Simulated assay, not measured.
Amino acid sequence: MNTLSAFNQYTNSLAPNGELMPVLFIGHGSPMNGIEHNVYSENWRNIAKKIPTPVSVLVISAHWLTKGTGITAMNAPKTIHDFGGFPEALYDVQYPAPGNPKLAEETTKLIKKTPVVLDHDWGLDHGAWTVVRHMYPLADIPVLQLSIDYTKDAAYHYDLGAQLYALRKRGVLIIGSGNMVHNLRMVSWQHMHETNYGYDWAVQMNNTFKDLITNGDHAHLIRYEQLGKEASLAIPTPDHYYPLIYTLALQGKKDEAHFFNDYVVGGSLTMTSVIFSEKD
């Protein structure tokens, strides 16, 4: 059974009104995925149809890096076009999902590890809206973002992420949005549209990540620097990897990991994504 078939069989078995919301790590890739109808965006739409409808969505995006931790707390977060050199149609997109100031304030109280600032300036960057607009196109579900403190290591973010677990019991869908393998400097632009084109080291590292996730080996994923030269190529900077760390921290004892969008792009990027959810 291929990966997509296995994923569809799995999500079809999820209870429509499960008590514990699943957790998603999504490889978001190019901002163009926000307006394109492709295998990635189609799977994002399908996931939203097969999991319980959340009361709110909380995104940890690779594109909101701060010193300290913040959470968006405005009533109407703006759509941020934090990229350059793309078609005008992408800049025209607005995703007017509401915020949830009350949930933002309650989340600050859950996190004991560090003070969390209620932010009224950021909004929804492309790590959030390019994905969520496919999942919830009516923009009728509140969306918040939690920032990533770029001064801290993976172990810190894992411990912080674990403190968000109670939100799963309250109907909040938590999404980590980044890419497991993300080396823009080594992208082969001439192969960007070639299906599943990947360098050997990228494919190897992607498989290593999947094996460790499947086995629940969070310790090695946290200490990714010790996974060899392939890891240093896959994660030259940790910004796109840290969202995965948050989702790992939210995995419960009964949660199973199932992969989707398991493709390599341009040699040095992977779209590989994972859903953590209980299965009866």
Rank of each mutant, 00 (worst) to 15 (best):
Q204D: 15
S56Y: 03
P115V: 07
N8M: 14
D200W: 00
S13L: 15
K152W: 00
G198W: 06
N261M: 06
N100V: 03
L4I: 13
R223G: 11
R170N: 09
P243C: 09
A166I: 08
E19H: 07
G29W: 01
S232M: 12
E230T: 11
D82E: 08
H240W: 04
K210V: 08
H193P: 01
K113T: 15
F276K: 01
L24D: 10
F259Y: 12
A89D: 14
H81N: 10
L24Y: 04
L20R: 15
L110G: 12
W122C: 02
N2P: 14
F7I: 02
L65Y: 01
L160D: 02
Q190F: 10
G266S: 02
M21H: 07
Y136G: 11
G123W: 05
N206Y: 03
H193Q: 12
H220F: 05
N75Q: 12
G68E: 00
K253P: 12
V132T: 15
L248P: 06
S41L: 06
V203G: 01
F83C: 09
E36T: 11
T208Q: 13
S188L: 05
I213M: 09
F86D: 02
N100L: 04
D149K: 03
P142W: 04
G127M: 06
Y197C: 05
P137S: 09
N75R: 12
N179D: 15
N2R: 07
P238M: 00
F25K: 05
L221F: 08
L118A: 10
A249P: 08
K102Q: 13
V187W: 12
T270I: 00
P52I: 04
F7Y: 12
G99H: 08
R168T: 03
I174R: 02
H63P: 07
N196E: 04
R45M: 13
A15V: 04
T237S: 12
G178D: 05
W44L: 11
T107K: 00
P52D: 07
G70W: 06
Y91F: 14
